[in-house]
Amino acid sequence: MAVFGIAKLLLAGAVAASTFGIGPAWTEEKFDLSPDTSNRLRADKNEAAIKAIAPDFKFVSPGKFTVAINPWDPPIATYATDSKTVVGADPDIASLLADSLGLELEVVAVAWADWPLGVSSGKYDAVISNVTVTEERKENFDFSTYRKDVLGFFVKADSPITSIKEPKDVAGLKVITGAGTNQEKIILEWDRQNVAAGLKPIEVQYYDDRAASDLALQSGRADVEFNPNATRAYAASIKNDTKVVGIVSGGWPLTAEIAVTTRKGAGLADAITIAINDLIKNGKYSEVLKRWSVTDEAVDASQTNPPGLPKSGS
């Protein structure tokens, strides 16, 4: 199996880590990436959620819900056309939650590697940034689920590949994925199974530049890209040069979910779960997901600290 150009990304264990943005020049043609967030969907105060906040919980800034978000790729989160305002599905969810808790939203753009320490130390009230629930993370954080963790297989629009559902479907193919991510773990396990079954190995490719990755796929140097479905589907809907040929859970063979993440035992998770479930019930949750083309990742209900992906080796 040939492996080259490994990006040294600080993204270990994070399905959130795709690769790289498609950029506002593409997205603003079809989606609103204006820095004017006055048109964000708003929610009413949720008294039940507010009452569920632990009496001793102190918000980072009084009257504000301080949320860390990594603006890594649309539609989940990216920079607006002013290159500083963070917009996308996660910021919109954060806004609805702030309203539900009777607070003003304060978004802090952070690098993916920085959120764990920031939440643990009380620098942020929460992180809403495509974080997958895992048993290891549950040792230090509480979770309130709000989206399914879904990965997608994308090929060139005119590719003869029409379906990828299981390991044998990628045998012998050149597959782009993100280094240090859940999708890499999955594709390497699929490759291990294929080789053990006497099938051709996968050639895994890593790129640290979105343009280089796109060029590899369009030129035929790569056959497939395997990364978070939301971001790649968003790009496909704009550029029309790729198509999805398969999706799997980010926790394959288990089901994985994305969650609002708070400090362990802080006393905020139940309140957030109540708020999310009310937003699901009143339809505002689905409106946000529809706006950002991620309706396929909707959950039926939010849960506090559900079973997460197991620790390595367990």
Results as ranks from 00 to 15, higher is better:
145 T>E: 03
104 E>T: 15
147 R>G: 08
135 E>P: 03
130 N>Y: 10
116 P>G: 03
130 N>P: 00
153 F>C: 04
113 A>V: 12
102 G>I: 13
139 E>W: 04
131 V>C: 11
148 K>H: 10
96 L>M: 10
87 V>H: 10
98 A>C: 02
152 G>C: 04
84 K>E: 07
123 K>M: 14
115 W>R: 13
120 S>H: 14
102 G>W: 05
83 S>V: 09
126 A>W: 01
109 A>K: 11
154 F>V: 01
107 V>Q: 04
88 G>K: 11
120 S>P: 00
110 V>C: 11
140 N>A: 00
88 G>S: 10
136 E>A: 14
129 S>T: 15
103 L>N: 07
87 V>A: 06
108 V>T: 07
144 S>G: 10
100 S>P: 07
145 T>V: 06
138 K>A: 03
100 S>C: 13
113 A>F: 02
105 L>C: 07
101 L>N: 05
118 G>A: 12
120 S>Y: 14
141 F>C: 07
125 D>W: 02
142 D>V: 01
126 A>I: 09
107 V>K: 14
149 D>M: 11
150 V>Y: 04
100 S>M: 00
90 D>M: 12
120 S>L: 15
84 K>H: 01
102 G>M: 12
151 L>R: 04
113 A>S: 15
95 S>M: 13
119 V>F: 00
123 K>E: 13
116 P>L: 03
154 F>Y: 10
83 S>M: 07
138 K>I: 05
148 K>E: 14
89 A>L: 12
136 E>Y: 09
99 D>A: 06
147 R>S: 13
89 A>G: 09
97 L>H: 07
101 L>I: 11
110 V>P: 11
145 T>Y: 08
93 I>S: 02
143 F>A: 14
131 V>E: 00
90 D>N: 13
134 T>M: 10
110 V>M: 15
155 V>A: 02
124 Y>A: 13
131 V>A: 01
84 K>P: 06
136 E>S: 12
115 W>L: 13
84 K>R: 11
106 E>L: 12
89 A>H: 05
82 D>M: 03
136 E>F: 13
111 A>P: 09
104 E>I: 14
96 L>K: 09
87 V>N: 08
124 Y>T: 11
117 L>H: 08
85 T>P: 05
142 D>Y: 01
97 L>S: 06
107 V>I: 15
151 L>W: 04
85 T>W: 05
98 A>M: 06
82 D>K: 04
90 D>W: 00
146 Y>P: 10
96 L>P: 02
133 V>F: 02
143 F>I: 10
84 K>V: 10
102 G>R: 00
122 G>N: 06
115 W>T: 10
143 F>Y: 14
112 W>C: 07
95 S>Q: 15
134 T>L: 02
93 I>M: 12
91 P>A: 08
105 L>E: 01
143 F>R: 08
154 F>M: 04
126 A>F: 04
146 Y>I: 05
148 K>C: 05
118 G>V: 13
85 T>F: 01
144 S>L: 05
126 A>P: 08
100 S>E: 08
137 R>A: 11
137 R>F: 11
99 D>G: 07
